[in-house]
Amino acid sequence: MLMALLSGFALSQSYRTITAIVAQGLQQDFGLSAQALGAFAGLFGLSFGVAQLLMGITMDRYGLRPTVLASAPVSIAGAALSALAPSHGWLMLGQIMIGVGCSPAFLACTIFIARHFPSERFAFFSGLSLGLGGLGLMLTGTPLAWVVQHWGWRSGFVILALLSVLSWLLILALVHEPERPDAPPRPQESWGQSLRSLAGLFTLPHTWGILALGMSGYAAFLSLRGLWLGPLLINRFGYSLVDTGNVALVLSLISLFAPGSFGRMDPGPIRRRAWIANASLLMAAMFAALAVLRHGGATVALMIALGLLWGYSVLQYTDVRSSYPSELTGRALSLYTMSMFLGVGLMQSATGAVAAWAGAQGLEPYRAVLLAIAGWLALASLAFRFLPASPLLRRP
């Protein structure tokens, strides 16, 4: 059942990163500026992140299977609309639909793991799930780059729409969430009570550091892999589209194993926060180095190192699960997942604006973008380190 749910998450990863492959085609057909391209890529993350607020509550009230089956057709329709889009506006509407339809994909996996696997195995299975989601990133590497190069950017959305239909059928056939005999009955709250309970998480001081970093690490990796990787390698170093796809494929292969590796190395609740903060600062330094590198091979090598490092994000999921009492786990994971993907949307949109500003000032846009990401990561890491931690994580 978990593998069936993960098929939906893998495809959401494909939708999230397809911009790196179709960017040139979109710019040629619709005359998109760097800022408009960033807004297009970011709209998926923004709609995905905002929808998380409702998806967590919906899963608590109605279950994982009904929520995923009801939302996935929206993403399929959005992909079809994107493939047929006659203008930029219709393309943006398609992105919103895809983001909303994909929004419960990974949340369903994490809640399923939290409910049906031992707590001490949560980090491992969450890492494994994040890694298997990398199969979707692989699709938007060399395979989709080859298709898009030969048949155009619209063919990419057609393929993803067809695969999404297959995923929906797989979930329909295989996912029937078992009820644990020892599980307490689900409370029948009103929507108002559910929303107030979710809002109550914001009154807890440790929530703010968690959200600040949640909106940063994964967003930085996806902004590079899903938006700027193609334009950077093509325009700065003269790579072809397929060459760029090959780099994206290598990053995607790495992403299959990096989260699981960090999940196995989980140092426990006390030391985990220091690991997370230090990894985030190191990631910021690597983005700063990318900004100034002028050698194509060294740039690709550093991108690969970033692909290895980003797996620390799985430790943040484990930190969230350890930071709240069990009755708040589902909603805390929902809120954190919202922050991750809202961060992706905000960072992609913001870096598009930074690129446009840098171009207007006669500066190289990619250097400005990478430095902006580095600064964002550094500030978020400091917030996570110095804002209060959960009382549940304090030493006895």
Rank of each mutant, 00 (worst) to 15 (best):
M1S: 14
M3A: 15
A4D: 13
F9A: 04
F9C: 02
L11P: 01
Q13D: 01
I18G: 00
V22I: 13
F30V: 06
S33Y: 09
Q35W: 03
L53I: 14
Y62T: 12
Y62K: 12
V68S: 05
S71C: 15
A72P: 01
A72G: 05
A77F: 09
A77V: 10
L81T: 05
L84W: 11
G94R: 01
M97Y: 02
V100G: 00
G101F: 01
C102M: 12
S103F: 03
A108I: 08
I111T: 13
R121W: 09
F122G: 01
L128P: 01
S129K: 02
L135M: 13
P143M: 06
P143H: 08
A145F: 01
V147I: 11
V147A: 14
R154F: 06
S155A: 15
L169K: 08
L170S: 13
A173E: 06
L174W: 14
P178K: 13
R180Y: 05
D182K: 10
A183G: 07
A199I: 03
A199D: 05
G200P: 00
G200W: 04
F202G: 02
L213T: 02
A219N: 03
L222I: 07
G238P: 07
N246I: 07
L249T: 15
V250K: 04
V250Q: 06
L251A: 04
S252K: 07
S261G: 11
G263Y: 12
G263M: 12
G263W: 12
M265F: 12
R273I: 02
A279P: 04
S280L: 07
L281E: 02
M283G: 04
F287I: 05
A289V: 08
M303Q: 14
M303E: 13
I304E: 07
L315K: 08
Q316F: 04
V320E: 09
L335D: 06
T337S: 15
S339K: 03
M340Q: 11
L342Y: 00
G343H: 03
L346F: 08
M347A: 08
Q348A: 03
Q348H: 03
G352N: 10
V354W: 12
G359Q: 14
G359K: 08
L363S: 11
L363E: 15
V369M: 15
A372G: 10
L379N: 08
A383M: 15
F386K: 12
A389K: 09
